[in-house]
Simulated assay, not measured.
Amino acid sequence: MAAWPAIYPPLAESDYGIVEGRLKASNVRSDGKEAILSILEPGTWFGEMSAITGWPYAHDVIALETAQIVRLPLEAFHSRMQSAAFAKSIAELLAQHTGLLYQMLEEATLYSTRARIARRLMHLARGDATLAVGNRSKIQVSQDTLAMMLGISRQTLSRT
């Protein structure tokens, strides 16, 4: 269970898009240790895998600040999936998310802690899951959050 209420329920009901604000996608172990998978920003959609498969959501999405979310109900999502253009967009979104997951797995298994920190900061500069074309000069992330994203302690992050 997450520290704050998740913004969407555990069973697939909708696809969601972020209009304003930042959210985090995370999981929490039974001992309370949190793994932050991604910071989601405006322009990011989430929930499409559960909308397609009917499986429960795999992680919590929690607002980090006041956020405005667009909800596409499950019935509307399935109706729009009949359109080749919409289905292609969803396939591209799923491919992008899968690519990010492979990249995270590669970084966790092949790179040093220092390189993982640098690479994650580069992802955050591009908007993490948003993958903006340009880099931003200021990244809003605490040491605790960055450490949770990397699966390391804040002390290890500070030392590195």
Rank of each mutant, 00 (worst) to 15 (best):
L94C: 10
G99F: 01
S79A: 14
H78D: 04
G54N: 08
A91L: 06
Y57H: 13
L72D: 09
G47D: 06
I52D: 04
E48D: 05
A76C: 00
M49G: 14
P73H: 10
P73K: 00
I62F: 05
H97F: 05
S50F: 07
I52A: 03
H97E: 13
E75H: 03
A51Q: 01
T53C: 15
A51N: 01
A91C: 07
A84G: 04
W55M: 09
I69T: 01
A85W: 13
A76V: 05
M81G: 05
Q96L: 15
A51D: 05
Q82T: 08
M49I: 12
A95P: 13
A95M: 07
I62Q: 10
A84V: 04
M81S: 02
P56W: 13
F86K: 07
K88M: 14
E92G: 15
H97K: 15
T98W: 06
F77Y: 13
H97C: 13
A63Q: 15
A85V: 11
S50Y: 08
Q96R: 13
S50K: 06
A85T: 08
S89W: 00
L93R: 11
A51C: 02
L100E: 05
F77K: 13
S89L: 06
A95N: 01
A87M: 02
A91G: 06
I90W: 02
T44C: 09
H59P: 04
L64H: 10
S83W: 00
I62V: 14
A58Q: 02
A67H: 15
E48V: 08
R71H: 10
T98G: 10
L64N: 12
L74I: 14
V70D: 01
W55N: 09
Y57K: 04
T66P: 10
A84S: 13
A91D: 02
L64V: 03
S79Q: 08
A63S: 15
P56E: 15
Y57C: 09
L94I: 09
T98M: 07
G43T: 02
A76Q: 15
E48S: 01
H78T: 08
S79L: 12
V70P: 03
R80Q: 05
H78Q: 11
L94F: 01
W45V: 11
S50M: 08
W45G: 05
H78P: 07
H78G: 07
V61I: 07
